[in-house]
Design a binder for these strands. Sequence first.
DNA 1: ACCTGAACACCGTTCAAGT
DNA 2: ACCTGAACACCGTTCAAGT
Lengths: 222, 222
Amino acid sequence: MARLSRDRVLRTAVDLADRIGIDALSMRRLADELDVVPMALYKHVAKKEELLDGMVDIVIGEIDPPTRGAAWKAAFRQRILSARRALLRHPWAPRVLESRTQPTPAVLDYMDSMIGIMRSGGFSRDLAHHSMHAVGSRLMGFTQELFDDKRGIDPTTLPPQVLQAMIARYPNIAEMAGVAVHEEHTVVGAGCDDQFEFEFAVDILLDGLERKLAVAQKSAAG
Amino acid sequence: MARLSRDRVLRTAVDLADRIGIDALSMRRLADELDVVPMALYKHVAKKEELLDGMVDIVIGEIDPPTRGAAWKAAFRQRILSARRALLRHPWAPRVLESRTQPTPAVLDYMDSMIGIMRSGGFSRDLAHHSMHAVGSRLMGFTQELFDDKRGIDPTTLPPQVLQAMIARYPNIAEMAGVAVHEEHTVVGAGCDDQFEFEFAVDILLDGLERKLAVAQKSAAG
DNA sequence: ACCTGAACACCGTTCAAGT
DNA sequence: ACCTGAACACCGTTCAAGT
């Protein structure tokens, strides 16, 4: 068994969270995994918060560096999609990220670099600021979804009467989800392509920002 | 002291969370507040999750009904801003909302109604679907922010050398935040208007969706 | 000086004993 | 049948006792 180190503690925590989920990741469970008494962890992380910060930084470290020489929009888009790929590897990451009260240096580096891409592309300080807020959590590759189809109810598992009742009460949701009941057959839509939805939203935002940038540059030139 | 009831349990929980924060809201603390033994709560809510669901529904209940007769964009926008006002009254609500694994009927009612607004405005089923994902958590009046200025570090409280080091390391963040150090004076920007940032993002999305709708309707007509 | 078992102050929830 | 105190199985973290 390798000697304990901060790095080994953090990497094991990431792997363990990938495997058992973030709710089940306790200091005690992590210590078990490392064949160590719980208190031994406290030599490498001061508190659990510091452990979570370290785990976030590992995920951030998986984001590709910015593409050199690309136009702002392409560079920004590629980086966001890379962040998304990193996040998808660690399903717990969005929840942990949003629970941090202080951004870590790695998060600040990433944000600074993203603002830099916009500034180099001609964004004013204010427009860059608004843009960061507009993009929000998508900057890190995730959307705060309220209608997560995966977490929702699978209509195929519902008794027909219940499904019928839901369609009656939520006709627009049902129609949107492509759920319909024909006499005796239940037709269920094809579900939802998360990657498509993510890019749809990112592109609306980037197109909108491009338009704002053009307006700002025109009025500055005129 | 009034008799315990599900409604009184839920309303007290909302008030208590507003006051002491969601992390401090435990079943035991809530029972204390109601001058009741912890187990008494379990007659009105089966588990803590059900308590949280009930609290969410109270917040959802504070969202104004849709404006009758308004065009889709105005109706949608007004409702989102109303949701935001409700959320702002209960700072814990976004975090609780996003932790729910199943949407409650009240959330489904709200979403169904929002989809209905779009469908009546001419959105196809697919465009309405993409739009819901694009708007994401903003539908409920909040943005998943990564750069929450309020939770961040207040630059005025930092020692000058630390501030200088941060500006050197994160020049774009510093510039965006309007932080600058002049010889001996430290100038700090005016901060950030959350309401403005929220509406900026909402309007980019709504404008983008309006454009997609127009394209779809033109190609359908042609 | 270092390491760690026991303990502390909490959780949500179960369950059996009491009325 | 109803109510509830004690208990269970956990937490993160402190601290003092042991080496």
